[in-house]
Every structure is written in C-alpha cells, then in structure tokens.
Design a binder for these strands. Structure first.
Lengths: 238, 238
DNA sequence: CGAGCACTTGAAAGATTTCAAGTCCAGTGG
DNA sequence: CCACTGGACTTGAAATCTTTCAAGTGCTCG
C-alpha cells in the first residue's frame, strides 16, 4: 500500500520558525504546560509518504507537527486500511500513546516535526501537575474526536461523511481561506479515513460540484455553499 | 461520556474473573490508585433502560459498574443511534470525561453502580501522582479501544463485525463460561453498536447457526467453533 | 513523447437496508 | 389454567446504496 515507507531516524538540530498555533484545544497555546518540553525537542523533516512511527512500535517519541499533514494508519491483514485522523500544523502526535503506538503515522506531504523523547515527557510530568493534567486532557480530546468518528463511520451515509469531512477541513486546515480548501491528502486517503472507496469519494464530490455546492480543481476545493454542506453533514438534506 | 473498558476489580478484591485489555501496559500495582476513591463512593442501583447520565451533561460523577451491563449512546438529530460500547462488571465509566459527557449512558439491564463525585477524583488526583497517572492510562486505554472500533466500523463487513463482537463478549462477559454467552443486550443494541440494522444482525447470526459455528437460543449463544469465528473476524473466511 | 499516477466516470455486481410478514415467548388478565 | 397481547426476534423479497470492475482523462515528470 505504501510504496516507500521509511523511518525518520535522522534528526537535524535545525530550528524552524514556529508558526502561530491555531486556537484549538489540541494545539499548544502561549503559556502552555507543554512549553516545558521545548528544550528537549528536536526538529525533524519527513518526506511525503515516509513513515514517522510504526503501529505497535515502542512509543519513544511524541511529536508536534510544525508544518504539513500527517495521517495515522491501521492496516488489516489483507491490506484494508483505516486512517484514524489527519494531523495539521500545531497538532500533537503520540502524546496519548500508552507504551506502544496504536497507529502508524505517515507524512501525507513533506512535513516538519518537532520531536520530544517520551522519557522526558514522563519525567517532567511526574513533577509537574499542570503538565500531567495537560497530557490527560490531550488524551481526552483525542478520545472525544475518535468517538465522533465512531458515529460517522457507524451511522452516516457516504454523502454525510464527505460533507462532515469537508467542514472539518474547513475548520482545521491552516490554509483554508475564503472557503477554499487545498487538501494535502489524496482521494484514496480520504476514502480510507471515511470508510468508503475512492470511487465513492469521487462520485459524491462530483455530485456536489454539479449541484453547485463545490468547485473542484484536483486538490483544490472551493466551498460555495457551506450551509448546504452543513445540512448534508447532519442528514437534513441529500 | 467516555466509557472506559478496563477492569478495576483488584482494588476491592472482588472475585470477578478479569482479563485486562492490555495486560503488559496496565502494570497492576499492589493497591490500585483508584482505591483512594472508595471512601467517597456511593452505591447506586439503576433499572433497565434508565439513563445514568445524559450526553452533554456536566460530568459530575464517575462510575464503576458493580454488576449488570451499561451502554454508552449517541443520537443523531433524526434518531439514528450509535452505541459506543458496552460496559460490564468491573468496567469504569466517566473517568475519561472532560467537563461534559461525550455519550449518554443507559442501563442495558438492571445494574448496580459505584458512584464517585468528580470533584473528589480531581482533588485527589492533584496530590497523588499515581492516581493522575492512572486516570491518564484509563483514558489512553479507552482511546485505544475506540480506535479499534474505528477500523471495525470503517473497514469490516457485517459478518466480520458480528464475529469480532462475539469474540469480544466471550472475553469480557463475566458469565461467559464454557463458550456460552448470555448476552445482556438485545439485537437492536448490537446493531447500533456495530453500525448495522437489526435484521442484518439476525441474518448473520442465523447464518452462523446454520453453519454450525453457533447455537442460538434467544439471548443465549453458544460458540461451537471459536476458530471459525476468529477467522471470520479477521476476514480470513466468510 | 511516453509512462505512471491520480482522479473520473459508467455499468454491473453485491452487500445491506427497507418494507412487510410472520414466529415465539413472557407476562397479564379472564 | 389458558388465551391474549406486546415486544423481541426472524425471515423473505424488493429496493437502495456502495463497491467492484473496467475504461478513460489529464497531468507531471523524465
């Protein structure tokens, strides 16, 4: 499935200018308990489609995405793939792991990560209640998001899933300006995230384009009628 | 509300047979950190189909199931329902909530709960690293289980979901002896947990019965060929 | 220019749902 | 004690949604 998947094992001591975090519970804020970790962080670039960590690997690092997009992946024996989530600039990865990683993580496009050794995270947390609490909250938020996806996959139709996904991207993509989405991930990633096939994703998008709800140009999608998407996401309209 | 499926019976020394979800990671301490809470607990019986907490309610209590079965529920506007998980004796509920409950929780059958005020949990955690750590682990385990369900709902067929579900019940139901399951939940609960319709659940069960993999008598299901179920759960066989 | 890849689209197949009857009990009231 | 009734469960047939299979487009890159 992934042609070339390699570990990001090299790390450089480069410092990368840190882009201002988008306000979101999952993202670090100015005076964040996570700031303590910064001195132990290293900056790591990872190329498109390369692996950041493997499913079942011992969780030795936590990451913060500085730029780019990361997907978390689980594979079934026969190759069926489920993408747990997409992580954007500012999002955290691996902080909720418990010993081993639940999912593999791969770069959707070229990404830059800030990497923190887990043993430092744990050591700091042991003497810092704010940090420990923060870690717990991070995990709780991940759980809440996973549960929302559970409803999506268990009970929503293809159109509802696509509409929900586009609305989520509209909120989360740092580059989403003027309701134009430049999706970093391909159709097949979207399909594997939403529990659909790539063809179904295409067809639903084409339908929304014909309807006038979207304008589509490859990876660039302009949302022309956000209200229609919202109705569709909630099942009020098809 | 976040439900946590992990046994905590050690701290009361009760005799429920237990199989920790993730044995290697749940380092069982001599006395569970949760034991601290016991002095603040009250015992609460809840009748079948009655609500324990509502989705979106302020999370004022955490619970441990003493006996019976609880379901966590999310409803869509139009009535579609997703059951997040079923909780059995020993399982924890609400410890991973973040301010408000993500799910409603309802008694599947008559249940007895042990209830702890959240403010006590938080207060104790603030001065007790072991407890804080325990709470984080509880949340991480919930997250891991939610992620496993994500693959189930996103990528598994109806037969695979039913087979996986039966195997999970075989592990988790305290009354599962000699491969006989006395399921506390009805077909419609199972359907809403697996993202299927009640009819599909019936048909798959009927198919497994005709095949000789199961014997079915209403809520009592005997697993005659566990290996077949395992193959079916992983997609090796249909 | 040609190859490869991502994306699109159409048509047929397939899985699951929907609609529509039943069946089977458990609990109730005669 | 037994018929009755409502709810849970089953089953069949048709409808529907999504997938599968197949083919074609368009773009990028060497």
């Amino acid at each position: 499935m992934q042609a070339t998947t390699q570990r990001a094992e090299r790390f450089t001591g480069n410092t990368v200018a840190q882009r201002p975090a988008i306000p979101s519970l999952l993202k670090p804020t100015e005076r964040d308990a996570l700031a303590l970790l910064e001195q132990f962080g290293t900056t790591v670039p990872v190329h498109r489609d390369h692996e950041i960590c493997g499913e079942g690997d011992k969780a030795e690092y936590c990451y913060r995405i500085l730029s780019g997009c990361v997907r978390t992946v689980r594979l079934m024996e026969d190759g069926r793939r489920q993408i747990g989530e997409f992580l954007m600039a500012g999002d955290l990865l691996g902080f909720d792991a418990l010993g081993i990683y639940d999912f593999a993580a791969e770069a959707v496009c070229d990404v830059v990560l800030r990497r923190y050794p887990r043993r430092m995270v744990d050591a700091l947390a042991e003497n810092n209640f704010a940090l420990t609490r923060r870690l717990r909250d991070i995990t709780s938020i991940s759980l809440r998001m996973a549960n929302t996806r559970l409803v999506m996959l268990g009970r929503k139709t293809a159109s509802e899933r696509i509409a929900s996904f586009l609305l989520e991207m509209l909120e989360r993509l740092p580059t989403a300006r003027a309701n134009v989405l430049d999706l970093p991930m391909g159709r097949s990633d979207i399909a594997d995230h939403l529990g659909l096939t790539i063809e179904t994703v295409c067809r639903v998008l084409a339908h929304l384009r014909r309807e006038g709800t979207l304008s589509i140009d490859r990876s660039s999608i302009a949302v022309r009628d956000e209200a229609a998407l919202q109705q569709m996401a909630s099942g009020t309209r098809h």
